[in-house]
Design a protein around this nucleic acid. Structure first.
Lengths: 148, 148
DNA sequence: TTTTATGCAAACATTTTGCAGTCAC
DNA sequence: GTGACTGCAAAATGTTTGCATAAAA
């Protein structure tokens, strides 16, 4: 078993323990949704997630379940959503440190980045305005190298 | 006539000239939508715009017209849209220099800000990733002073 | 007069909800 | 066995589109 996979299993077990402790119930559907998100190379829409789960893991999953799960994951801060501008929400697992996005307006490619200076400056802006900062979204739109 | 109003008339005349030159037609509806946006103190949804136009200027205006107008304005870069996270697009006139937003997750208040350091750093991030930067959106979420 | 813009209603797309049945604990 | 979760279908929401009419140039 490679590290990547071991990491996912650890993550999943941890998640399930957390759910159990809250008195809620686990389900195969949520497990597979998380697995799809974990190994996804891009930000996925609800439709894509449902489809991927059906194709890869051969289980029945309704679109409503995916919507409900994403809402659940977002409340737990396990998942973050992003609207590229087409009115469709796309999701990614929120495993790593906070990061922001570069979106190519031509091919819709999404590149993640972090920038310490920007992060710091955001804290400053929030405090200057007496805001208790909770989160932020920063998306840069442009044309990627390949599309230029 | 105060300056504020004079400014709007100049802005409107300029806009109408631009429309005429493109061979398109002006309309009372667009004039009043712009007027509402110009004097708005907050970012407005399509529903709010339609309602404000009806109430303040007593003209008939269909929701479809507002949607079509907003699309038109966005293409001309006169208007910018913003999704606070509730799935409803809100609009503002794009008169000033670029600015970003602080959104209160409790009362939905929106505060605008600009930060030179962040702007510069964005340019750097884009160029580091070989992106041809077109635009960006940065929104900080938190709890405003009043709601704390 | 010609062409575009409007208003209405129908169509669409995405997301949410109600409910009966299933599954986890 | 109890209560939460699921799938389905219906409903709700936000946005777009087709078409006949009205208005601008």
């Amino acid at each position: 078993m490679n590290n990547y996979k071991k990491d996912f299993n650890a993550f999943l077990e941890n998640f399930k323990k957390h759910v159990s402790k809250s008195g809620l119930k686990n389900s195969i559907q949520k497990d597979y949704i998380l697995k799809i998100l974990y190994f996804a190379e891009e930000h996925l829409s609800v439709e894509q997630i449902a489809n991927d789960v059906k194709v890869k893991y051969k289980i029945d999953i309704g679109i409503a379940t995916v919507y409900r799960s994403m809402k659940f994951f977002e409340e737990l801060n396990i998942v973050e959503s992003l609207d590229v501008g087409d009115g469709i929400k796309r999701y990614e697992l929120n495993l790593s440190l906070h990061h922001d996005h570069l979106v190519c307006t031509s091919c819709s490619k999404i590149i993640e980045f972090t920038d310490e200076i920007i992060e710091e400056q955001q804290l400053k802006v929030a405090s200057d305005n007496n805001f208790d900062l909770k989160d932020h979204v920063m998306t840069i739109y442009g044309i990627c190298e390949d599309c230029q």
